[in-house]
């Protein structure tokens, strides 16, 4: 409340046609700018109350519609959604670390990192842990993060002709950014695997870069 009167006075200064006032108002606005709260004044540990799912669904549906424009195929659209998620992931990774700075450590092994994504990152964004983390039986470099009810898919119904589209690609982008940030380059793809119990079930297939596998062997 105390801040309110100041800008209004500045604007009334500006509205007056007196030349003397004009100079003073520019001085006031510059000093106002220096006093304005910046991103550095915010407290990162104060968590905002959970955002309503409807708000997210609305924003996300706009993102999906936007990424549908001027794309050639499902693949390209998924890449776009993944790119949106990438921006989120880059930031969430560092933010989640800072909030747990007391026992923060860097992940240096694949399994540790995947568990970190599965629990800490998923909780930070979606308020729940992912449902399962599995290692592929026949491929050494593939892991699966399984979400029975991904938030990104909750209000999306995919038309028949786009049946291979999975909008949870957005979440795949988040995973990719976290893996990349920790120096574990990987390709992450989202595949919907509907079951009777969980019609929205999505498997995030993590395919690690050969470089990571090599390093992992060396560190063993």
């Amino acid at each position: 409340m105390s801040k309110l009167p100041t800008p209004s006075r500045a604007s009334s200064d500006k509205s007056s046609s007196h030349p003397g006032f004009a100079v003073r108002s520019s001085a006031t606005s510059s000093s106002l700018a220096s006093r304005r709260a910046t991103v550095y004044d915010r407290n990162m540990n104060r968590r905002a109350p959970d955002l309503a799912l409807s708000t997210f669904a609305f924003l996300f549906s706009e993102m999906v519609q936007y990424s549908q424009k001027n794309v050639k195929g499902v693949q390209e659209m998924e890449n776009r959604l993944s790119a949106y998620g990438y921006h989120v992931g880059q930031r969430v990774l560092e933010l989640a670390t800072v909030r747990e700075i007391k026992n923060a450590k860097r992940e240096t092994r694949v399994l540790g990192l995947l568990q970190f994504i599965n629990t800490t990152i998923w909780k930070a964004i979606f308020g729940k842990v992912a449902d399962a983390l599995e290692k592929s039986k026949d491929q050494e470099d593939e892991y699966m993060i399984i979400d029975n009810n991904p938030v990104a898919n909750s209000y999306i119904s995919v038309p028949k002709e786009l049946s291979s589209l999975d909008c949870a690609s957005f979440q795949a982008g988040v995973i990719e950014a976290v893996m990349d940030g920790c120096q574990f380059p990987a390709k992450i793809t989202a595949h919907s695997v509907p079951t009777e119990l969980y019609p929205l079930k999505t498997v995030f297939l993590v395919k690690l870069d050969p470089l990571v596998i090599e390093r992992e062997k060396y560190m063993r």
Partner: peptide
Amino acid sequence: VDLYDLYVKTLMSPFYSVDQAITSKVFDQR
């Protein structure tokens, strides 16, 4: 640790992207 805090705050700005040079005067001051 405090510098990390400042860095992450910079990162939280929607106008900053990873690996971009930090030119903010406020950051400098902090």
